[in-house]
Amino acid sequence: MPDFLLLTFQKNKMDTAKKIYVFLILITIVVVLIYAQSIIIPFILAILFLFLIRVIRRILAKIKFVSRWPQWILTLFSSVILLSFLVFTVEMITRNIQHLTATLPVYEANIHKITQLINAQFEVDLSDILNDFAKDLNFGGILSKIFSTLTNLFGDAFMVLLYLIFLLLEEPTFPGKMKAMYPDKKRFEQVNGLVKKIDHSVSSYIAVKTMASLLTGLLSYFVLLFAGIDAPIFWAFLIFILNFIPTIGSLVATLFPTVFALLQFGEFTPAILVLAVVGAIQLVVGNLLEPRVMGSSLNITPLAVFLTLALWGLMWGITGMLLSIPITVILIIIMSEFPETRPFAILLSRTGKIKD
C-alpha cells in the first residue's frame, strides 16, 4: 500500500476513534447527570446561591458606611439576608398550603356550579364529564404535589447549605490557587478572564431575572389580593418561581391562579380578571422591561432556550428547567474559548457574535 494511502487510512481511523471517544464521553456525562442528580443538583443550587450572595454583596458595597466593612462581614451579612428570605418564604408557603387545604370543600362544591354555567352559556352538556372529573380530582393531592415540587427545587436543604458554606470558605483563596495553577502569566490571564466572564454573565442573568420575577410576583400579589383570591402569597410565590422557566413558566404561572379563581368563586368574571391583569403584568415585565434591563448579557438564541429547556427538563424535571439557562450561559462562554467548540457557541448564540 502506498505511503500516502496508509497515512490517509491511519488519519481516518484516528478521527473515527476520536469521534467514538467523544460520543462515549457524552453518553457517560448524561448518565452521570441523571443518576447522580441528588448530588449534582444541590451543588449547582449552592453555586447559584453563591452568585446571589455576590450580587447582594455588591449592592451592599455601594452603600457608603457599609462599603468600609471587611469583605468577610459583607459576605456573612449577605448570606444572612438570603437565608432569612428563604426561611421566611418556606414558612409563608407552609401556612398558605394549610389554609388552602382547609377550604378544599368549597372549591369542590363549585365544580357543579361551573358545570351549570357552562351548560347555560354554551349549551354544551358537560355534566357527565365534569362529574367524573370531580370524583377523580383530589385538590389536597394537587396542592401537596405543588408544595413538594417547590421544596424539592432546593434539593436537600442540608446538602445545599453544606456546599454553600464550603464554597464561601473557598472563595477568598480561589484567586491565589488560580495563580498557583497557572504560573504562566498569559495562560493565567486567559483563564482568569474566562472565570470573570462566567461570573459577570451568570450574575447579571440571576440578578435581572430575580428582580423581574420579584416585581412580577409582587404586582401579581396585589392583583390577587384585590380580587379576593385565597392564599395570594402562595400564588405570588409560585409566579415568582415559574418565571425562571423561560416562556412556558410565564404561561403556566398565569393559568394556575386563573383556574384557581374559577374554582374558588364558581364564576367566570374573577377568573377573567386574574387572567387579563396577571397576563398583562407578565407581558409588560417579561417582554418589555426585562429585555431592556438585561440587554445583550443573555446571548442565547430562542431555539437554544427551548432545546435546553426540554433537555434539562427531561433529565431533572422542573428543577432542570429552572437551571437550564444559567447552565447554558456557562457552557456557551466556556465553548467560546476553545477553537474546537467555538462553532457550537456561535450556533447557540442569539446574534452569532461571541465577545472575546
Results as ranks from 00 to 15, higher is better:
residue 2 P to V: 07
residue 3 D to S: 13
residue 5 L to H: 14
residue 5 L to C: 10
residue 11 K to I: 08
residue 12 N to M: 10
residue 14 M to A: 15
residue 17 A to H: 04
residue 19 K to Q: 12
residue 22 V to P: 01
residue 24 L to R: 06
residue 25 I to P: 00
residue 33 L to Q: 02
residue 36 A to N: 08
residue 36 A to E: 07
residue 36 A to Q: 10
residue 37 Q to H: 12
residue 39 I to E: 14
residue 43 F to I: 03
residue 44 I to C: 02
residue 45 L to W: 11
residue 47 I to P: 07
residue 47 I to K: 06
residue 49 F to P: 02
residue 50 L to Y: 11
residue 50 L to R: 09
residue 51 F to A: 15
residue 52 L to W: 07
residue 52 L to M: 14
residue 57 R to E: 15
residue 61 A to N: 12
residue 62 K to P: 00
residue 65 F to E: 13
residue 65 F to M: 12
residue 65 F to K: 13
residue 66 V to F: 04
residue 68 R to N: 13
residue 72 W to S: 15
residue 74 L to Y: 00
residue 75 T to A: 08
residue 76 L to K: 03
residue 78 S to M: 01
residue 78 S to F: 00
residue 78 S to Q: 01
residue 80 V to Y: 06
residue 86 L to I: 15
residue 88 F to K: 05
residue 90 V to M: 11
residue 91 E to M: 15
residue 94 T to R: 14
residue 100 L to W: 02
residue 100 L to R: 00
residue 102 A to T: 07
residue 102 A to D: 07
residue 108 E to C: 03
residue 110 N to S: 01
residue 110 N to A: 03
residue 114 I to S: 03
residue 121 Q to I: 00
residue 123 E to V: 05
residue 124 V to C: 08
residue 125 D to G: 03
residue 127 S to V: 09
residue 128 D to P: 05
residue 131 N to S: 09
residue 134 A to K: 12
residue 136 D to Y: 14
residue 140 G to M: 08
residue 140 G to N: 11
residue 141 G to M: 11
residue 143 L to N: 07
residue 152 N to R: 08
residue 162 L to R: 08
residue 172 P to G: 10
residue 174 F to A: 13
residue 175 P to S: 02
residue 175 P to I: 00
residue 177 K to W: 15
residue 178 M to H: 06
residue 181 M to A: 14
residue 181 M to K: 14
residue 182 Y to C: 02
residue 186 K to P: 06
residue 187 R to E: 15
residue 190 Q to R: 11
residue 191 V to S: 02
residue 191 V to F: 09
residue 195 V to M: 13
residue 195 V to S: 12
residue 196 K to F: 13
residue 197 K to H: 08
residue 199 D to R: 09
residue 199 D to G: 11
residue 205 Y to E: 09
residue 209 K to W: 04
residue 214 L to W: 10
residue 215 L to V: 12
residue 215 L to R: 09
residue 218 L to R: 05
residue 222 F to E: 07
residue 224 L to R: 05
residue 229 I to F: 08
residue 230 D to A: 13
residue 232 P to H: 04
residue 232 P to M: 07
residue 233 I to V: 15
residue 234 F to I: 06
residue 235 W to P: 00
residue 241 I to L: 07
residue 249 G to R: 01
residue 250 S to N: 08
residue 260 F to Q: 02
residue 264 Q to F: 05
residue 267 E to D: 09
residue 274 V to S: 00
residue 278 V to E: 01
residue 284 V to I: 13
residue 284 V to F: 11
residue 284 V to C: 03
residue 287 N to S: 14
residue 293 V to P: 10
residue 293 V to N: 07
residue 295 G to H: 10
residue 300 I to A: 06
residue 301 T to G: 12
residue 301 T to Q: 12
residue 303 L to M: 12
residue 311 L to M: 09
residue 312 W to E: 02
residue 315 M to D: 04
residue 315 M to E: 01
residue 316 W to P: 01
residue 319 T to C: 05
residue 321 M to A: 10
residue 323 L to Y: 02
residue 326 P to V: 05
residue 328 T to R: 03
residue 333 I to P: 01
residue 334 I to P: 04
residue 334 I to L: 09
residue 344 F to E: 03
residue 345 A to N: 05
residue 348 L to P: 04
residue 353 K to T: 14
residue 356 D to G: 09
